[in-house]
Amino acid sequence: MKIAINNLDDLRKFAVDFALRLRGGDVVGLIGDLGAGKTTFVQFLAAALGVQEEVKSPTFVLVREYIATEPTAFERNIRKLVHADAYRLEDEDELWAIGFADLVDDAETVTVVEWADRLPALKDRSTYHELRFEFDIGEKRIIDSSER
């Protein structure tokens, strides 16, 4: 399903709506070129899950973990947000080698991965969901959301 995003406010609304449909254990792959808005989307998503800290780009550190504090998220078994970024990875084993599976497997965690196309093993998971970010003109983006 393709969703037209005209500006940041549209993106925020989309993220808030998306957050409401998440459950603990879900894995979300974000795909799109540099500056497409993956991190910006996660910032809105995190706020909707009640993350208190500022969400920054995880490119350098690869993985960041946040605590969810939104009571309605608790009802859907979400206690934690893991924000990962495969941009710097050359070999997908690297992320698994540092124990990434332990984070992703946690039933109370929602995992969001930027540059998920570099982590193809994610797709095998039954809880995997994918969002593709495409550039339109100016502030406009198109998000292609896989069926769930």
């Binding site: 941009y87 710097r88 050359e90 070999d91 690297e94 080698a97 540092i98 124990g99």
Partner: peptide
């Protein structure tokens, strides 16, 4: 440092 993806640092593994 590999250049393939323009900024990739491989073998970040703790091992």
């Amino acid at each position: 440092i590999h250049h393939q993806f323009g900024g990739v640092v491989p073998e970040v593994a703790a091992r």
